[in-house]
Amino acid sequence: MRHTLAVLVENNPGVLARVSSLFSRRGYNIDSLAVGRTDDPAVSRMTIVVEGDARVLEQVNKQLHKLVDIIKISDITADEFVDRELVLIKVNADPSIRGEVMQIADVFRARIVDLGQNTITLECTGNGGKVNAFEEAVKPYCIKELVRTGKIAMWRGAKYTGFPGSSNKTNKEDE
């Protein structure tokens, strides 16, 4: 099964390398990885999509926790959630077929973000399925270039994955 993990990390140099090298050396497969800072600039949030059964997931979780820079890990897939990906696609579209392409974009509520002499650049957001479908729909127009973000995700409703304290929080041994 595919799981989406929200991983809060201290925004230290090398933290991405620590996480990605952990996945590769322990043989876990990353389907997608997206990183960006949170509202606290000292904290980044990684959204990692990982494939595996419950036992693999448990190990992923525990091994990630051993990294000192990791603050918190939440399995977003454990509850209702919203997830989004964004794609930018540049397709061939001379003025005679622009209208067709724009109609397809309309169906997917994609936006036109740039026009070239014979090209058109589209932006589409949605869950993975929608973004895939959009890509298929514009394929006949010859995709010149495509770039896709990793998935980001968040729980629905009041539930949230926050982090305890600030970076000044001290940490005492549980004696």
Binding site: I71, F163, N168, K169, T170, N171, E173, D174
Partner: peptide, 13 residues
């Protein structure tokens, strides 16, 4: 006087 580590806190009990 104190360590500053956000996510590191081993379980002892």
């Amino acid at each position: 006087s104190q360590v500053k580590l956000w996510g590191y806190s081993p379980t002892y009990r």
